[in-house]
Write a protein that binds this DNA or RNA. Structure first.
Lengths: 220, 220
DNA sequence: CAATAATTTTTGGTATACCAAGTCTTCACT
DNA sequence: AGTGAAGACTTGGTATACCAAAAATTATTG
């Protein structure tokens, strides 16, 4: 039994399909078709589409089928820029407000990654990586910030997912996470900002290369 | 004739009522009642409520009437923190990307404020002030940033509105806007960040005092 | 054959109806 | 009078039906 509303379930399912690439960008999302597929009426589907629209995953067009958002290169770069800024702020705030439990939690994530980083499945590793950043944002104690951060993290999920798959040197990630954690432990806001900046800047580069490669393939 | 969908019109109307205080925090927003008042069915109203919920103006509760969001003090402070960070980023980016037209537009707003700041109605002045910040975010050339910024600006609308009404020294605002504009013209990203930081920090103080005062009244 | 007008179809927007899960009221029983 | 159970009512969630606008298609005409 699920306590979620139907619309939320549908939103979750559609979100997964979009992020995993089952519904590639540009695909039209027709209320009736989806409804027929999933055996539910248009109403909750409509609502689910609105949810995803606010998350930036689908694009609403007046009197036209919504489509899966096409993330052109600049769009992704822009979103990454915002994400970095939000996470830097999170780190800085977390230096003041993070509890010992918060830090322990982050440490355990880093630990897990470092101990398993050559045996773990890349996809699982990716999920763990995400959880580190989410936990960091949460420990800022600023709910609005954590939520907005989470939204951007989700929008960039696909790009990050693709870039994480092809990345070889995961050791780098562990080291950088450790740096962030150290700054947090030292309660050094500026150091934390710098560590995040450096870490995510590398991410941005990875994403850039993936997007370029993907759009190059699409031209073909 | 309006090109907006009914749901959007309703959302706009409800948003205005909430921000202007006609629907004070805690008021329950019942689909059927609103529908009866405005002579429309529940469907678009339901959708409007979802929109406002994503904007943080109303709070959805499982199996319960949504209520107008209660903005406790920390919540507003947190949102202000995020807004400041977003606007600092906007200013920094704008130093690189703003076109001459963008800067001219901002300059005209500052000009208008400076020339009319003792004759203009406080409310209109407030709207002009808002447009300055919105225009600044837009000239960053980062759509995701501008949209998120706009969301937070809107969430804080009521608090800013209240603080703007009681503020006497609007000259200060004009001066600070001029500083921001100067930094922009000089394409000095750091100076722009600092100018924004200083300007909005004052705003945060104003908001703080208003909220404290309001919640004090509410205790009575 | 081309262009355009008419029509059919598709699709989102809105209204209405029904249902289930709470909430509140009321009334019976101790 | 206090307590609790039953039922009426409120309210959000979902399904279905209808409408209008926009696309796509077909027909018509030069």
């Amino acid at each position: 039994m699920s306590k979620e509303t139907l619309a939320e379930q549908i939103a979750n399912r559609l979100r997964r399909d979009i992020l995993r690439g089952k519904l590639p960008p540009g695909t039209s999302v027709k209320e009736r078709d989806i409804g027929a597929d999933m055996g539910v009426s248009r109403t909750p589907i409509r609502e689910a589409i609105r949810i995803l629209s606010k998350e930036g995953l689908v694009e609403l067009r007046p009197s036209r089928s919504p489509i899966v958002a096409i993330s052109d290169f600049k769009e992704v770069a822009d979103q990454t820029t915002v994400l970095i800024e939000l996470e830097k702020l999170s780190a800085e705030l977390a230096c003041k407000t993070a509890t010992d439990a918060d830090i322990d939690h982050l440490a355990s994530i880093v630990n897990y990654m470092s101990e398993n980083f050559d045996t773990i499945d890349p996809l699982d590793m990716f999920e763990v990586d995400m959880s580190f950043h989410t936990a960091l944002a949460s420990s800022s104690g600023n709910r609005a910030l954590a939520e907005t951060h989470s939204t951007f993290l989700r929008r960039l999920w696909r790009a990050r997912y693709l870039s994480a798959r092809q990345r070889r040197n995961r050791e780098r990630v562990v080291n950088q996470h450790t740096l962030i954690l150290d700054a947090l432990r030292a309660r050094d806001g500026q150091a934390a900002r710098d560590a995040i900046d450096y870490h995510l800047w590398r991410l941005a580069e990875d994403i850039r290369s993936v997007i370029e490669q993907e759009s190059a393939n699409q031209e073909t």
